[in-house]
Simulated assay, not measured.
Amino acid sequence: MSRKSFTAALTLYRSRTLTLEQAASHSGVSPSQFESALRSRGVPVREQPTRSPADAAE
């Protein structure tokens, strides 16, 4: 994870422009790694909405 890509992803995550998964992808790491990086920096991790099978069909 480069510092520049993480900083950009963090900014977009905090502004609610990106989801955790999108921000992780932008940073080039897994969602769990991005979440760990957020927590280590004291950034609150938003709850991700759960999708029902009906939502996936849309």
Score class of each variant (00 low, 15 high):
M1K: 10
M1Q: 06
M1V: 08
S2A: 13
S2Y: 14
S2R: 11
S2E: 12
S2P: 10
R3Q: 07
R3S: 09
K4P: 00
K4H: 10
S5N: 08
S5K: 10
F6I: 00
F6C: 00
T7E: 09
T7W: 01
T7Y: 02
A8L: 13
A8N: 12
A8F: 11
A9N: 04
A9I: 00
A9P: 00
L10I: 12
L10G: 11
T11D: 10
T11S: 11
T11A: 03
L12K: 08
L12F: 01
L12S: 04
Y13C: 02
Y13N: 06
Y13G: 09
Y13M: 03
R14M: 02
R16N: 15
T17F: 04
T17R: 09
T17E: 14
T17D: 10
L18Q: 08
L18W: 03
L18E: 08
T19M: 01
T19H: 01
T19Q: 02
L20C: 03
L20K: 11
E21R: 14
E21M: 13
Q22G: 05
Q22N: 02
Q22T: 04
A23W: 00
A23D: 02
A24E: 01
A24Y: 01
S25T: 13
S25L: 15
S25H: 08
S25Y: 10
S25Q: 12
H26W: 06
H26Q: 15
S27Y: 02
G28L: 15
G28I: 12
G28W: 14
G28E: 04
V29W: 00
V29L: 01
S30R: 13
S30A: 14
S30E: 15
S30Y: 10
P31A: 14
P31G: 09
P31L: 07
P31M: 15
P31Q: 14
S32R: 13
S32L: 09
Q33G: 14
Q33W: 01
Q33D: 09
Q33I: 13
Q33N: 15
F34M: 14
E35L: 14
E35K: 14
E35V: 06
S36T: 12
S36N: 07
S36P: 04
A37Q: 14
A37F: 04
L38C: 09
L38H: 02
L38S: 04
R39E: 14
R39M: 15
S40F: 01
S40I: 08
S40V: 14
R41G: 14
G42F: 03
G42Y: 01
V43K: 02
P44D: 08
P44V: 08
P44W: 04
P44A: 11
P44M: 05
V45T: 15
R46P: 06
R46C: 05
E47R: 12
E47A: 13
Q48C: 05
P49G: 09
P49Y: 08
T50L: 12
R51Y: 06
R51Q: 10
R51A: 07
S52R: 07
S52H: 03
P53G: 00
A54D: 13
A54R: 12
D55C: 00
D55A: 03
A56R: 06
A56Q: 10
A57R: 06
A57Y: 02
E58L: 05
E58K: 05
E58F: 07
